[in-house]
Structure formats: structure tokens, C-alpha cells
Design a binder for these strands. Structure first.
Length: 493
RNA sequence: GGCUCCAUGGUCAAGCGGUUAAGACGUCGCCCUCUCAAGGCGAAAUCAGGGGUUCGAUUCCCCUUGGAGCUACCA
């Protein structure tokens, strides 16, 4: 049996979006699982849409994703070149062959003429389809005009009756009446092929056995099969994948500001979490497993588990996956990854990153949320007095004021400013004055953080910000509470 | 509009003629607890509608509805 060869064939029009990443992933898994090869081909036949630097971005993204291709523009291979614009001369002879057999014909209609006719038809509510106008030009005349340098395109000559069809691994038999199919342009006036032609020629020339791509090609694939037939070539096996949606009606798209793969990485999602999540978007394994490394996916992937309907990209679940991957990371790796994010909020401050990382490890969902979570360590936020009122902790401003005053002396006097010593000190004070743990800890934590919730409690925060800052913040709290109590005329026994 | 495709909770989804219709995320509750997380336990929530076929339909067929893709000298 021939070697399995799949390809990922993006156009360099921007960043690698998540739908593209998923297509690439499945194509990669499909090939690798069968010991085949995964090929990257750049489809840049539309020079106008090409975005500067996009090709390099594709290489980079694929490498970052770990989807290493066996053949491609930057890695070489025996079927190159792998960039269509560099294969320019290859296509015309094939088109000429089709011209010869009648499966295609030259067309001299200009864009303007076409547009006029199109407008005329659509204005009346009809729908335009190329009328084979130039098919009737005698061969001799056509040849003369082509050689005279008159601009022309080459169109596929689709039969006027019968059906065109193909078999899809996921969707099964798909067919369309030829009568409604348009005579697509195969070779543009600039001599470059359109996607419709180039994909067929290149897939054949590159010995692609399985074409895995999005469903946007589902309805035009019957036409491609007509081309294979015209050449007498064996068509590849097709596998079309449903699109990835942003919500029920909108496709995920870069244009609407939806994040691409690289954006997600930059936001602090880890690669494996993204890949794992993406793999499960539109595919389900035979069992209930949901954590897979790339290698495990290679093993587990199967076409049976693919779903036919579009699936919505659900950020909540991605966040969960990310948090899970972070929790499972060993601590040293986590510390290394989180350090730059700590720096964004705490640079220049003398904070024990290692201890902070211990506290943050199970609390990190996405790295870009870290700076905001730890920023209070660098600077005490302005906070409302009613933070001191907590029903469950049984605290109010009056009690809080009493508690803070109580702590001031003992905390200042602590010989050892460690979490253990702090805890012992505060718990001792609570016991001594008949206070519940929460009544002691809540006011202190609020005074030290100014926040309703923090990573770590009162003693951890005190340790992290140090004695001096702790004393300052306690004093700030006391001042606030004294002012408040006197203003509200609260009796302080 | 035409063509192609799709349709199980809010989301990802299992199911492939007979099930109490899995599981996960999210949501809610409880436990744990110096706050919040993490962790543990539990709950609510789904077969779009209508016809058939069948002893029996979530499952097969048709229609309706809804959605998506295509309808370029874009891919």
C-alpha cells in the first residue's frame, strides 16, 4: 500500500487561526498515525491577498504547535517547491492539455464585461452563471487571439448535464447537478492558477493521498473530481472538516478580533492545553478520556469520532484545560513560566517569588491574569470601609478596629517574621481575647490587601510584603476605621 | 434566491431500534477552610417541530423550521 500523505495548505493571508490549526492538527494526526507524511504547502496564487510576513508566521506557528511537517518550503522535500507562486510555470501545460481535450477553454471576456452581465442578472433577482460565451469561439480563432497577446483566462468546461460527485470520509457521498455548476476560471489572466486548479494539480503532483480541509470546499469538490477525471488521475480520499464557530451564527475569524493561536500563547495559554482543547472541538475519543499529549492524540485519533456539525469555540473550557495543565506542571516549570508575569506587577519589589508561586500555582488559569492578581502586593489598593464588614466572619468596622490595634504591637515585636510565627502570634491573640479565627484574620487580611479575596491569607500576605509594609498597611487600616467610627459615632467601649 | 451540508442540555459531546439518554466545561448547593482558589460530595439542565417505517424511535425515511458553507480572474 502506498504511503499516506496529507497536507496542510494555508494561504498566507494572516495569522494561523484556530480553525486552521485544528485542520492542520487533524491532517498531522491522520498521517502520523499511519506512519505517513505530513506536508506543508503555501497557497499564494492570489498575490493581492498576500500579507507580508504571513508565510514565516505559518512556519513559526506550526513549529510552536509542535506540528512538524516532513516536507515544506523551509524544510525541503522531493516534491518541491512547496510554494505555489514558485511553481508558476507548472500549471499552464496541464491547462493546455485540458484545452486540447475540450475539458477547458480560453475565455476572453474581461472582468468589466463579466461584471456588467453579472449586475444585469442579479438586478433582476436572478443569479449569474458564466454562459460559456467563449466556448463557441472557433479553435483557430481562439488560438490566434491567445498568441496575439490578448488577455484571456482558461475556464473549466463543465458538462451541462449529469452529476458530479465524490466520496467524503466524513460526509459520505456528495453530489451536485452539473447544470448548476459554474465554469470556473482555472488559469487567471496573470498566468497563475486559481485555487480550483492549483489544488488539484499540486495534490496530484505531490502524491497527496488524503485531502483534509475545511467544509468551505465541500460544495466545490465535485468540480475538482471532474478535473481528476479529465486528466485520468486517481482522486485523493477526501475528509472535510466542519468550521469552528465563535457563536451559534458566526464563524471564528481574525477579522472580528478573535484570537489566533499565537495570540492565545501570548495571553498565557500553554501550548498543550490549546492543542488538547482544539483536538476535542469536533472530535471525541472512544472513551471518556480528555487529556492527551500530541503523541497520545496521534494514537487515539479516529475519523469515527469526528462530528459533522460546526462546533463553537468555548473559551471557558479552554481556560479550564489551561488551569489543569498549569496545575499538573511541576513547580519549577511553573515558577519559571510565571516569573515574567510577576515582574509585570512586582518588578523592583522585594517579594519572595518562590513562595508567591506556591500560592499562585493552583490559582492560575491564564498567565495574563496573574499581574492583576498579585498587584496588591506592590501597592495597597484604595478600598471601601465596608470590606471590613463580613457576615460569615462576624466582623464589622468596630471589631476590625479593635483587632488591628491589638495586632500592631505584637506583630511589630515579632522576632521572626515568618508565616508560622505570624500565625502563632495572631491565633494566640485571638484566643487571648476570645475572638474566632475569622474575626482575627479577616480584618488583618483586608488591611493588608484591600481586597475581598486574595491568593493566600493574612499571614501569607504579611510575610510576602514584609514587616515594614505590614505595619504601614495596618496603620492605614486603623486610621480609616477610626475616622469612620468617629464619623458614625460608633461607641468603642 | 440557488446549490451542498448539518441538527442530543448554555457549550464540547457519548449514543449508531429497546438505556434511569454517558462524561466534561459552565451554573447552583454542601463540605473543607485565616479570604479566594484548589480538593471532596451533590443538584438542576438536552433528543427543534410534524409526519411516516416499526411491536418499539434520540437512533431509519420525508417535510417544516433553524443554522452553516459555497455561489470571485479568493482560498
Amino acid at each position: 500500500m502506498a504511503e499516506i500523505r496529507t497536507r496542510f495548505a494555508p494561504s498566507p493571508t494572516g495569522y494561523l487561526h484556530l480553525g486552521g490549526l485544528r485542520t492542520a492538527l487533524y491532517a498531522y494526526l491522520f498521517a502520523k498515525q499511519r506512519g505517513g507524511r505530513f506536508i506543508l504547502r503555501i497557497e499564494d496564487t492570489d498575490q493581492e491577498r498576500e500579507v507580508e510576513g504571513a508565510v514565516e508566521l505559518i512556519y513559526q506557528s506550526l513549529h510552536k504547535a509542535g506540528l512538524e511537517y516532513d516536507e515544506g518550503p523551509d524544510v525541503g522535500g522531493e516534491y518541491g517547491p512547496y510554494i505555489q507562486s514558485q511553481r508558476k510555470g507548472l500549471y499552464l501545460p496541464y491547462a493546455l492539455q485540458l484545452l486540447e481535450s475540450g475539458a477547458a477553454y480560453p475565455c476572453f471576456c474581461t472582468r468589466e464585461e463579466l461584471q456588467q452581465r453579472r449586475d444585469a442578472v442579479t438586478a433582476q433577482g436572478g443569479q449569474f452563471k458564466y454562459d460559456k460565451h467563449c466556448l463557441n469561439i472557433p479553435k483557430e480563432e481562439a488560438k490566434r487571439r491567445m498568441e496575439s497577446g490578448e488577455p484571456f483566462v482558461i475556464r473549466q468546461n463543465i458538462p451541462t448535464e449529469g452529476v458530479a460527485s465524490f466520496e467524503d470520509l466524513l460526509y459520505g457521498h456528495v453530489e451536485t447537478d452539473c447544470a448548476i455548476l459554474d465554469d470556473n476560471v482555472l488559469i487567471k489572466a496573470d498566468g497563475l492558477p486559481t485555487y480550483n486548479f492549483a489544488n488539484v494539480i499540486d495534490d496530484h503532483l505531490m502524491a497527496i493521498t488524503h485531502v483534509i480541509r475545511g467544509t468551505e470546499y465541500l460544495s466545490s469538490t465535485p468540480k475538482y473530481n471532474l478535473l481528476y477525471e479529465a486528466f485520468g488521475w486517481q482522486p485523493p480520499v477526501y475528509l472535510h472538516l466542519p468550521v469552528v464557530m465563535k457563536d451559534a451564527t458566526r464563524k471564528l475569524s481574525k477579522r472580528h478580533g478573535d484570537p489566533g493561536f499565537e495570540d492565545l500563547l501570548a495571553e498565557g495559554y500553554v501550548r498543550d492545553a490549546i492543542l488538547n482543547f482544539i483536538a476535542l472541538l469536533g472530535w471525541a475519543p472512544k472513551d471518556d478520556r480528555e487529556f492527551f499529549t500530541l503523541d497520545e492524540l496521534v494514537e487515539a485519533f479516529d475519523v469515527d469520532g469526528l462530528s459533522k456539525s460546526p462546533s463553537i469555540f468555548n473559551t471557558d473550557k479552554l481556560v479550564w484545560f489551561n488551569a489543569e495543565y498549569i496545575k499538573r506542571m511541576n513547580f519549577e516549570d511553573y515558577l519559571a513560566m510565571v516569573t515574567p508575569w510577576f515582574d509585570k506587577a512586582l518588578a523592583g519589589k522585594n517579594i519572595d517569588y518562590r513562595r508567591l508561586a506556591e500560592l499562585m500555582h493552583t490559582r492560575t488559569e491564564v498567565f495574563n491574569r496573574v499581574p492583576e492578581m498579585v498587584g496588591f502586593l506592590a501597592e495597597l489598593p484604595v478600598y471601601p470601609i465596608d470590606l471590613y464588614t463580613h457576615k460569615k466572619m462576624k466582623t464589622d468596622p468596630a471589631l476590625s478596629l479593635r483587632v488591628l490595634k491589638l495586632t500592631l504591637g505584637p506583630v511589630a515585636a515579632l522576632a521572626d517574621f515568618s508565616e508560622d510565627a505570624l500565625k502563632e502570634c495572631l491565633m494566640g491573640l485571638a484566643a487571648e481575647h476570645g475572638l474566632k479565627t475569622g474575626q482575627m484574620m479577616w480584618p488583618v487580611r483586608v488591611a493588608l490587601s484591600g481586597l475581598p479575596s486574595t491568593p493566600g491569607g493574612a499571614t501569607e500576605i504579611a510575610y510576602l510584603i514584609g514587616r515594614e509594609e505590614t505595619m504601614d498597611r495596618l496603620s492605614v487600616g486603623i486610621n480609616m476605621l477610626e475616622q469612620y467610627c468617629s464619623m458614625m459615632k460608633i461607641d468603642l467601649e
